[in-house]
Design a protein around this nucleic acid. Structure first.
Ligand SMILES: [Mn+2]
Ligand SMILES: [Mn+2]
Ligand SMILES: [Zn+2]
Ligand SMILES: [Zn+2]
Lengths: 140, 140
DNA sequence: TATCTAGTTTATAATTATTCTAAAGTAAGT
DNA sequence: ACTTACTTTAGAATAATTATAAACTAGATA
């Protein structure tokens, strides 16, 4: 029943590659997340609220969580550890870093940070990724 | 009623500087946290379980949370953002970094990581701290 | 096209980590 | 000993998330 115009192909493909059937709810979520020029950082609550605000028939909480998790597992979203009580997700899945300022997340492109020295992994282990968080506060 | 031997002075002082009266429960927590050679990384649940295991009269959950929070506010503990569902705390309050491997936290001394390039804070903001987390996985 | 079936959505219950509340207990000063 | 402010604690409440299971659909099949 999916009105499958090519325009949505890219968003549908992300769902398919995550093993998800492209239902209306999922396609809308995928478009909301990926149909934008800039990186989008969000919590599931924020995503749900901003999408449902504009809708008469709300998408359920479980569908938001399920879809975000599947997209994350398929590598289309990255999960960030910035605060201890909420998961932040990131549509920028390339290796990069963040400013974090009172709930607001700002990308730092990978080439803006360079290491002069990095430790090696303990024996038997290897490095999966290196994540830098620069916390900000107001001047004076 | 506090049996105040000098041996505990350092642990009691941390409590006092956090605005806490040195009750028996608090002194035991403070000793458990700070009476050790190496950095201790923990979640409140882990702290509670390991301390209460050895005790006939258990210290309550609320006392653990309250004491840890007060010690953190006074600057005697640092809170880490490593996982999204649990707060980790660190008895090493100096600026340093971490390996994180499946719930296990390992200190990286500050001088083991050096930056060749770091972005400056957006206008109106300044950098509060820079935190590097190196996530590990098993070899091959 | 009607039917079938596996996959999906949703409301609601459950769970986990954490915080709140308010009653009972205790430290210290007088 | 008495008072009072501070503590401890069990248990209720909250927030984010996950699980459950009934009603619903997409897509395959006849
Ligand atoms: Mn939490
Ligand atoms: Mn959480
Ligand atoms: Zn990002
Ligand atoms: Zn540490």
């Amino acid at each position: 029943m999916q009105k499958m115009n090519n325009k949505n192909k890219i968003f549908i493909d992300k769902l398919r590659s995550a093993g998800l059937r492209p239902t209306n709810q999922r396609v809308e979520i995928s478009k909301f997340l990926f149909n934008r020029k800039n990186t989008f950082h969000f919590t599931v609550e924020e995503l749900k609220n901003s999408m449902n605000l504009k809708r008469s028939k709300k998408i359920s909480t479980a569908t938001f969580y399920n879809t975000v998790h599947a997209l994350k597992s398929a590598g289309h979203l990255k999960e960030l550890s910035l605060e201890n009580n909420t998961s932040y997700y990131d549509t920028n899945i390339t290796s990069h870093h963040h400013f974090f300022d009172n709930g607001k997340v700002i990308d730092i492109k990978s080439d803006k940070i360079a290491f002069h020295k990095l430790p090696e992994a303990p024996k038997g282990k290897k490095i999966k990724n290196v994540e830098v968080v620069i916390r900000l506060e107001n001047n004076n």
